[in-house]
């Protein structure tokens, strides 16, 4: 078997998720290559080459691959696909954008967001917002798969894979990049943080999210939110945790002013320890919380910050 992993990066840094996708590739077994596609991505390729278990890093460095737009990136993967039995990417907005396009161009199914590898063709994946787990077998000769990164432990970084240039250059007359507004923040990435503290509609407004910041600072936590908090404009979309937002599985998840709708639970119920702070003692979030604290968040949060 031979597996190609699409590397993901942000602002010139290899994304943490790629090391988790390589772990999924190891669970499948076989030779593992990484593809780094982008513009000026030598640094990303070097970081990818350090990931354990990787034989080769293939680098397509060309302006047409800038910003990992779906159309050229998919065409590039199609051009390389014949060397592989499996194509893998993280189930991030990049992986979800590109891989289905590749699969359709290769006339094969795509398997989304796998949680476990049963065998090289059989995988477990969540359906119905994670309320059921399906075991599916791919009958296709090429398996195109996105990986839920929180379900696989990252590989180490003591490797030294060969780096090779790929000279395939596709053209893209279909789409152009206009701009990007990326959230700037000093906190750990939501998907990889050891502690996550999230606020919901109960926070009342965006200003009140400051109440979470002091606690996040003390715990080295990432800050998340429910859809209701994002829809209401309290915080930006990249903070949404849930079925259609980010999936997190930290050591500690603290839900504040969040009722616990199934779509929210889908994004956090695999956390090791869950704490819920809510004034409604019947809120469904308490059914999944290891520790529930009933009360007004505006009183409890300052006290919690002080006592940590």
């Amino acid at each position: 078997m031979s597996i190609l992993v699409l590397a993901e990066y942000h602002e010139g840094q290899l994304a943490a998720g790629t090391a988790h996708v390589v772990a999924a590739a190891q669970a499948i077994g076989g030779d593992i290559d990484i593809l780094v596609a982008g513009d000026n991505v030598a640094g990303v390729a070097e970081a990818a080459a350090r990931l354990d278990g990787v034989s080769r890093v293939r680098v397509a460095d060309n302006a047409v691959y800038a910003h990992q737009l779906a159309e050229p990136t998919a065409d590039l993967l199609v051009a390389l696909a014949d060397d592989y039995t499996h194509l893998l990417a993280a189930a991030t907005t990049t992986g979800k954008n590109v891989l289905p396009r590749v699969a359709a161009l290769k006339d094969v199914n795509q398997i989304s967001e796998i949680l476990a590898v049963d065998s090289p063709d059989t995988f477990k994946r969540p359906i119905y917002a994670g309320n059921a787990i399906a075991t599916v077998r791919s009958e296709d000769s090429l398996k195109v798969i996105t990986v839920r990164t929180t379900a696989f432990d990252a590989v180490g970084e003591s490797g030294a894979a060969a780096i090779e240039a790929v000279d395939v250059v596709v053209d893209n007359a279909l789409s152009t990049f206009v701009d990007e507004t990326l959230a700037q923040n000093e906190r750990p990435e939501l998907g990889g943080a050891r502690v996550v503290i999230s606020g919901g509609r109960g926070m009342g407004n965006g200003e009140n999210f400051k109440l979470l910041e002091g606690i996040a600072d003390k715990l080295g936590a990432a800050i998340g939110a429910s859809r209701a908090a994002v829809d209401a404009g309290f915080v930006p979309n990249d903070m949404q945790v849930g079925q259609t937002g980010k999936i997190v599985a930290p050591e500690l998840y603290i839900a504040v002013g969040i009722s616990g709708a199934i779509q929210h639970l889908a994004g956090m119920k695999d956390s090791r320890v869950i704490v819920a702070i809510n004034k409604d003692d019947e809120a469904p979030i308490f059914q999944v919380a290891d520790y529930g604290l009933v009360g007004d968040l505006f009183e409890l949060l300052p006290e919690l910050e002080q006592k940590l």
């Binding site: 199914n109 059989t122 077998r137 003692d281 308490f286 999944v288």
Partner: peptide, 20 residues
């Protein structure tokens, strides 16, 4: 033909804990 659906299971239920 879609991928073969071999099995569908309920995920391990999370046990609610305690109120502090």
């Amino acid at each position: 033909a879609p991928p073969t659906l071999l099995k569908v299971e309920t995920p391990a239920e999370r046990q609610g804990g305690v109120k502090v």
